[in-house]
Design a protein around this nucleic acid. Structure first.
Lengths: 375, 375
DNA sequence: ACTTGGCACTCCAGGTGGGGGAGTGCCAGA
DNA sequence: TCTGGCACTCCCCCACCTGGAGTGCCAAGT
């Protein structure tokens, strides 16, 4: 048996051909040395199958495999290995007497143990840097990254705007846009701007508005958003009676904005790339597009990644989204140091260049993290 | 001959069966009366062909046509009419001895002269109103409208955020987010918020920032954006020497934001609906998706509509976008009174329910216009 | 002059029926 | 344990056919 699979790929230095796991398992007893060699070749066969299948999109047979890859054994031997791999559930045949294709489990093993991270060429690195450097503001950074990622990976790219949770209140602006209607603008230290409209009972004088503004900034400025929300709840109590009703209204809306933050914005690009892999998705392309229009789903997909630097791969049902059961999702997060500001990733067919895509995702996240961390 | 085609559909009361145009044309001389009857029946046949084809997506033949529609003539007569319609380029047959399908020219005539506007049911109206009323801010209004439109028409929906050009400066906020780096936030009376970051030579004191803010608001507040841009250009001259460099930097960025407004934001929804009509697009679905990711293209598509209340239909090559030559675009604009705030519309297959879609687009634009005009 | 039924003709859709070929599993021998 | 050989399976592709829908045209009717 080939050792089990973890859930996280690594984006660090390549770790292909790591030592085998425990040799425990049924079957005839063999010497350790021989066993290792066997194991290793089987893994090599699996790798070859995945790589060929990713390129050709056709079931790969023993003969072609033995020819194209320097396995040093005959097709017949490869056949034996393939039979074993099939028994263990790593590959399958679409129909009797056809070649083999990887199963989800096979892809998983490939990602966990067989795929190093393909380093980017210098040209690619420069392209990334140049492309992102031209950004003029936060929106632009996100827009550029998502397009870049889609272009590099030739898949659908998803980038989450820097999350509100981990940032602090920089400034709160209150403007009366028409009598009795206030616009409050919340500015965070990640340069993100949130706006809300609040209706108050009656028109306010300009100096009242100014005082509201002052009170809010004094109390909430510099706090983490979660703390600010808590503080906002207590504000009306301590206020002068004249301001209390307005403050109550403002606080309510602020808390909504701060805590519920139901508006986690997300940018998407490269949906056109889905059509290239339309065959892989058979008839479910529509379902995939629908799923990708759901913010909730996207957040679920890219929100899982914990600390920046870790690239997560989810294959097929591992995505926990039924409509995406024929896809694979590669996600990571970007941020400064250990604090994640947001997630990003790509969605593509399971038949995907994992090493290349993982490194592209990792690299873009890295640059974006640096860019936003530099403030 | 059937009179030529204009470019704009109408969203007012139905104008089906308007009187014929001039009877000038080659061919044998006939009496006016007979000529009219003939003309009219041919148009009716065209309408029937379009309607059936929209429903069935199959070339429609003379027999089915005579049966399903109360034309009062035999299939043979219908065949003659169809031959004439084909000569004139309104319909075509995919191959010899198949039924007929409308050409772009045929759809155009259908839209111009044959299609009334299907009124919405009361339930639909209520649904629209309810759905849009729950919006909490501008972003939400746009988001909800675009989704609603996609759902109602079952096509791809496009909604442009209220354009900057026709609105006025409500307030300008200047905040120093880190030493030497200013965030300027521009708030318009359409409740739109634009943000930009400006780097200045050296850190500023808080009172300097306050003065900058005051100067900008005094000079630009209440003006139309275009005028504000012009005014901003002159600002640095009249300012006190201490403020001049900062004002110059701010003015530059403001003018960019105000005039170039290269960031016309656009919301998109319902791309999944494209797959439903994938057959109509043959293999060009990818091109369509790519085109729809280009802001420029989208602006071109929905930016053409002039005054609110007019629904524009562009069919095939009329879109002036090569990738969309197999689609039809229905667009309008929304706004208050005569001033358009932005465009909206849908993109779908040429084989589309024009009356229904046109009325849906018109209705949603109407409600959105009211909603934003109510401020 | 328009309409209608009849009729021969065209051409696609869909089903059928083989080969050709790629791939497998198994076995016996090295 | 590896290898070559061999029989077998099953898909893919192509060629062929045939039913049916639809057309165009013509001659007769109104």
């Amino acid at each position: 048996m080939i050792p089990g699979s973890g859930r996280h790929g690594r984006a660090g230095p390549a770790n292909r051909r790591v030592g085998p796991g425990g040799p425990v398992g049924p079957g005839p007893v063999v010497t350790e040395g021989v066993r290792d060699v066997l194991e290793e070749r089987r893994l090599e066969v699996l790798r070859a199958i995945v790589e060929d299948f990713v390129l050709s999109n056709e079931p790969v047979g023993s003969k072609a495999l033995a020819e194209r890859h320097a396995l040093g054994v005959s097709p017949a031997t490869v056949r034996n290995d393939m039979a074993a791999l099939e028994d263990e559930g790593y590959i399958t045949q679409p129909h009797t007497s056809a070649g083999r294709i990887p199963t989800d489990k096979g892809y998983r093993l490939f990602v966990d143990r067989l795929s190093g991270v393909k380093p980017l060429s210098r040209a690619e690195r420069r392209a990334i840097q140049n492309f992102l450097e031209g950004a003029v503001d936060l929106d632009d950074v996100v827009l550029r990254s998502v397009r870049l990622l889609a272009q590099l990976t030739r898949q659908v790219a998803v980038v989450q705007y820097p999350s509100l949770t981990s940032s602090r209140v920089r400034h709160i602006e209150v403007v009366q846009i028409s009598p009795g209607r206030l616009l409050i603008v919340l500015i965070t230290d990640t340069a993100r701007v949130e706006q809300r409209i609040v209706d108050v009972a009656e028109p306010l004088e300009e100096d009242v508005v100014a005082e509201l503004r002052a009170v809010l900034n004094r109390a909430l400025g510099g706090r983490r958003l979660a703390d600010a929300a808590a503080e906002a709840a207590t504000l009306p109590e301590g206020a002068s009676p004249g301001l209390r009703p307005q403050l109550t209204a403002l606080a309510t809306v602020l808390i909504e904005t701060l805590v519920e933050r139901h508006e986690e914005r997300i940018a998407l690009a490269g949906t056109a790339n889905l059509t290239r892999s339309a065959l892989d998705f058979s008839d479910s392309l529509r379902m995939i597009l629908e799923a990708l229009e759901e913010q909730v789903v996207l957040l679920k997909l890219i929100g899982w990644a914990r600390e920046p630097g870790t690239v997560t791969v989810r294959i097929g049902r591992e995505t926990d989204v039924d409509a995406l059961r024929s896809t694979a999702v590669i996600a990571t997060s970007y941020g400064r140091g250990n604090a994640a500001l947001g997630g990003m990733g790509v969605v593509g067919p399971k038949r995907m260049d994992y090493p290349g895509t993982m490194s592209a995702v990792w690299a873009v996240a890295n640059y974006v993290g640096e860019l936003l961390g530099a403030d």
